[in-house]
């Protein structure tokens, strides 16, 4: 118990441009093991890019990103190995359209972890049970509701036994009545101690499950505080303005 364990995610001096647009400006962010961090901010503030940079779906122009103490490798096998340990849930679900729900969940364990088919299927069914869609296992993604698809996508990510989970606006493409079923699953994960970075507009989730709220605007991290502090006494005008707009109604 001498050496301090590295944070699960560490970003230092990260910069990224899309052409002339500076989408990430000198980002410094650490997420500790077991911590749930919610990233808030107006659209175009760079939150999605920040999330996607962590498993290198977006390469960065400068700075360093480490996951569990390992710097992100360049394109290749080492990167694939790192991505296997980082679960990702997308706004548009992105379930494999030509595979059944069970096959979606099994694919990673079988192809990447070299798990046996039967063992992978059993594990997949356990996960589908956990997210409450066992009865959908044999269907194709297009046959499921948005909420069910997103829960399947969470199960697919969990099947890799990730060290950390990234959620890129997981409920933004859902009809209102389906949002809570997905948030329930996420709250459950948070309670079990999963390290999570969640891009979301769901203030209820942030209040209930987050340890920290990070507020981004124009590619910068403006505030980084406990949810209670951030929601009641935001320091910056931009955060006040943002909260005013979303909490007004």
């Amino acid at each position: 118990m001498t050496a301090t364990t590295p944070p699960m995610i560490r970003m230092a001096g990260v910069n990224k441009h899309f052409g002339s647009l500076h989408v990430l400006r000198d980002i410094d962010l650490e997420v500790d093991r077991g911590q749930v961090v919610v990233v808030l901010g107006p659209s175009g503030s760079g939150k999605s890019t920040l999330c996607r940079a962590i498993n290198r779906l977006e390469p960065i122009d400068g700075g360093t990103i480490e996951v569990d103490g390992t710097p992100l490798p360049a394109e290749g096998r080492a990167l694939a190995k790192l991505r296997a340990d980082v679960g990702m849930v997308f706004q548009q679900f992105n379930l494999f359209a030509h595979k059944t729900i069970a096959e979606n969940v099994m694919l990673g364990p079988v192809k990447v972890r070299r798990m046996g088919k039967q063992q992978a299927r059993d594990a997949a069914m356990t996960l589908l049970d956990r997210v409450g869609i066992t009865d959908q296992a044999g269907k194709y993604p297009a046959q499921l509701s948005g909420g069910q698809q997103q829960r399947a996508a969470i199960a697919r990510a969990l099947a890799m036994r990730p060290k950390v989970m990234l959620f890129d606006e997981p409920t933004s493409a859902l009809d209102p009545e389906m949002i809570s079923e997905v948030l329930e699953v996420m709250v459950g994960l948070a309670e079990e101690g999963m390290t999570m970075l969640v891009i979301t507009h769901e203030m209820g989730f942030a209040r209930r499950a987050a340890h920290r709220v990070v507020f981004m605007s124009d590619g910068e991290i403006i505030e980084d505080a406990a949810p209670q502090t951030f929601f009641t006494t935001p320091r910056s005008d931009r955060a006040k303005d943002f909260l005013g707009k979303i909490l007004a109604h």
Binding site: L57, R83, F90, G108, K111, V112, A153
Partner: peptide, 19 residues
């Protein structure tokens, strides 16, 4: 998004292309 999800799960480029 399909290829991104495949890569995010940890499939290599060739695996994601093939499967």
């Amino acid at each position: 998004g399909q290829a991104e999800a495949a890569r995010a799960v940890g499939l290599t480029f060739i695996q994601s292309l093939g499967t």
